[in-house]
């Protein structure tokens, strides 16, 4: 698990107590099957590196989205939406995933369900702009919960 070991140092001494309640931010079964992959339930090295890797990935993607939004690059936005959709779905971050899917559709000049075409680029960009605000908020919430789960004070 390269690149993620440094983060693992921040773990707390306390052992985790069963499966935490993440509310509706995180889909329990999906996240749990990743937790199951941990060799050690106290250290949670694997899942932690995955989750923190995802944090980096998500933040990087948000930055790229801002740039693409400024450039009006809808195709790129769609592709970035798809990209983040995949990893957030795999981790069970349901809300983030849904918003990313919307961005993917808007970027492809569709409505948020991906079924109706939207000809106006500006409408699409505006929708992405709004959704990006939503998704960042959703992400922050999930991040907070996850960091708490991993006893990360930061």
């Amino acid at each position: 698990m390269p690149g993620a070991k440094d983060i693992a140092e921040t773990r707390s001494e306390e052992g985790s107590t069963g499966f935490p309640d993440f509310g509706d931010s995180i889909d329990p079964p999906t996240f749990e099957q990743i937790l199951e992959m941990d060799d050690d339930e106290d250290e949670r090295e694997f899942s932690k590196s995955i989750v923190y890797g995802f944090f980096e990935q998500a933040e990087g993607t948000f930055t790229k989205m801002e740039t693409s939004l400024a450039n009006g690059d809808l195709a790129q936005l769609s592709s970035l939406g798809h990209f983040l959709k995949g990893s957030s779905a795999t981790l069970g971050l349901t809300k983030v995933k849904d918003s990313c899917e919307k961005i993917q559709h808007f970027g492809a000049k569709k409505d948020e369900t991906g079924t109706v075409d939207e000809a106006d680029d500006q409408v699409c960009l505006q929708r992405i702009k709004d959704t990006l605000v939503d998704v960042k908020a959703e992400y922050s919430e999930a991040e907070k919960l996850l960091k708490k789960f991993y006893h990360d004070p930061s």
């Binding site: 698990m1 990743i34 992959m37 694997f46 590196s49 995955i50 890797g53 995802f54 990935q57 990209f83 995949g86 990893s87 795999t90 981790l91």
Partner: peptide, 13 residues
């Protein structure tokens, strides 16, 4: 898989 998160979880599974 291009997505590192998916790739790593997939590999792990």
């Amino acid at each position: 898989e291009d997505d590192p998160t998916c790739r790593r979880i997939g590999s792990k599974f």
